[in-house]
Design a protein around this nucleic acid. Structure first.
Lengths: 129, 129, 129, 129
DNA sequence: GTGGTCTAGACCACC
DNA sequence: GTGGTCTAGACCACA
């Protein structure tokens, strides 16, 4: 099943970031596995009616982040996941994002356990280890 | 205990957004309660060595979002929290952020229950109801 | 029945304007009639816990607009209403405000007849001629 | 027919608010329809001999209010109208403005039916549903 | 080309 | 004292 992108041009989030997020989500969700290839820049650009440079930028940044690897002549391949740093460091890296969740949850009057459960359910859904 | 801001000018995130996030976090974390006043625009601007307009923009947007209210001649006061929409709608509003957490957690090789527990701990720590 | 003011310090509308509006509304609604006196500046300032200068400013502007007249040693008295200009001019003067209503109604998906009826009902309620 | 702005620098109303009002009026009046683009910030700024930031502020606030949407690299596009809240809530939201109309009408010696008719005529003129 | 961010500094409105 | 508005001009991000 090919990965299909969908963008909201009006969301305020740059298109290249929307693309990056969707690749990351596909990888995290198991729809893309190690070794799979992303659709080509041209393909995606045509499908989304968007400038190829925009897609290219997204792919380059994903490569920089170690999510995918360029294989010359073939395209972008999903890289092996590698945990970097100690457990403690990796937890620390997640903290700012969790703080944002906490703030948003507060504003929405959603309780801690409630949100934690939503999150766990979301992650279990796509767990495959 | 006065609220103290800290910004990372290199993070790419606009200063006014960093300020907004910190106010939101302080409110969600109970360090600022309903009725408390934010430090004045000039004060913060001086402390951060930043243009007052930048802080003013952050405060205005927080006011539009209902987080604080302007009291003429006195300053910006933390507003009462009001949940808007049905439970379902509010949960839905949180979903995109949770998806981001899930993707980041995967990249960091952190498990669902592990992350859910971190989040719950973070939110319990600052729970006041 | 004495006129009682109520202000929302957080509404964004300057206090002196809120006071002015309430005097105008009281006059339009028949709660204050020609010759009646407004409560004194001090009285109102004390009641609202507000700087007397603020009330004084409101009263001065109302006097400038011909809504009230200062009677030395007694206070501010409601003036006789006098229509200024031709009917056409007076209608024209109301137009910008009506345009604002039209725009707001559109945004709220309220129909013309619906809004017109609301307005007429509101005005009939306080009509006394 | 391009939207043309006109501002009264002496009116006391901030320029950015005058611009906002005119956009809203143009949308409500059908001169701008869903999907149409506003003139660019630079264009308007040049036309009005005003700082681009002033126009930018107006546009940003209109975006926050859901009147227009930013399309990256293209400009500001008129958004679909979406009524929010119950009928009752929306009527309630209009009330303060109607009260202002009632007070102004009284001051101008214009009767309820007279004003209601003016308003309805104004709204019918631009009705398109 | 589009809008967004930020600065330095002036002036205003309100309390 | 508080925040709000505006300017002139620089630089950035995005498509």
């Amino acid at each position: 099943m090919a990965l299909r992108f969908h963008i909201l041009p009006t969301s305020g989030v740059p298109i290249y970031r929307q693309v990056m997020e969707q690749v990351r989500a596909a990888v995290a969700g198991g729809h893309l596995r190690e070794g799979d290839f992303l659709p080509s820049v041209r393909e995606v650009a045509a499908e989304l009616a968007v400038n190829p440079m925009t897609i290219s930028k997204a792919y380059s940044l994903l490569e920089r982040d170690g999510v995918v690897q360029m294989v010359r002549g073939q395209g972008m391949r999903v890289a092996a996941r590698r945990a970097v740093g100690t457990l403690r460091q990796r937890r620390e890296a997640l903290r700012p994002l969790l703080a944002q969740v906490a703030a948003a949850a507060y504003q929405l009057s959603l309780s801690g356990p409630e949100v934690a459960q939503m999150l766990e359910a979301l992650m279990k859904e796509t767990d495959r280890e």
